[in-house]
Amino acid sequence: MKPSEILDAAANIILRDGWHQGTYFAFEPHDPREVCEEKNRTAPCCQAGAISRAAFGVALREGGLKEATDARVLAFSRASHYMLWHVQQTYNVTPIEWNDRPTTTKDDIVTALRGAADDARRAGE
């Protein structure tokens, strides 16, 4: 997948599964080693979780990239970079901080993901 495709897919994930603030996705197991794959694939998630889910099929957390292909990791990294650049240029803050602000809405997130995807497309990605 290209970074632009990941970002468009992330916007669709937010629209389909819902948006979340405060953590990567709405389901947080009591034990960090406990993983509920279904919730990881379908629970509402923040913009970073949606980008991860779009790239890898699940909202990966630290250490989860070990099983991903190099091409997938690179596309995910580039998509995250475009989102970072877009949000910093628009709101002068990081995407994670902006995602969690009380004034940020689901529509804002979807618009920013689509804007970042457009930036990536203009760059040929």
Rank of each mutant, 00 (worst) to 15 (best):
K2E: 10
E5Q: 15
I6N: 06
A9H: 08
A10T: 09
A11T: 09
A11S: 09
A11I: 12
I14F: 14
W19M: 12
W19I: 06
H20C: 05
G22S: 08
T23R: 06
F25D: 09
A26P: 09
F27E: 06
E28G: 01
P29A: 00
R33H: 08
E34C: 08
C36G: 08
K39M: 03
A43H: 07
C45Q: 11
Q47P: 03
A48K: 07
S52M: 05
S52V: 04
A55V: 06
G57H: 03
V58M: 00
L60T: 10
L60C: 00
G63M: 04
L65F: 15
L65K: 12
E67I: 07
A71Q: 07
V73T: 04
A75I: 00
R78T: 11
A79Q: 01
A79S: 07
M83K: 14
L84C: 14
W85P: 00
H86A: 14
H86I: 12
H86C: 13
Q88C: 09
T90C: 08
N92Y: 11
V93S: 13
R101D: 11
T103Q: 05
T103N: 02
I109G: 00
L113P: 05
R114S: 05
G115H: 01
G115L: 01
A116R: 04
D119M: 13
R121K: 14
A123P: 08
G124K: 11
E125I: 02
E125Q: 09
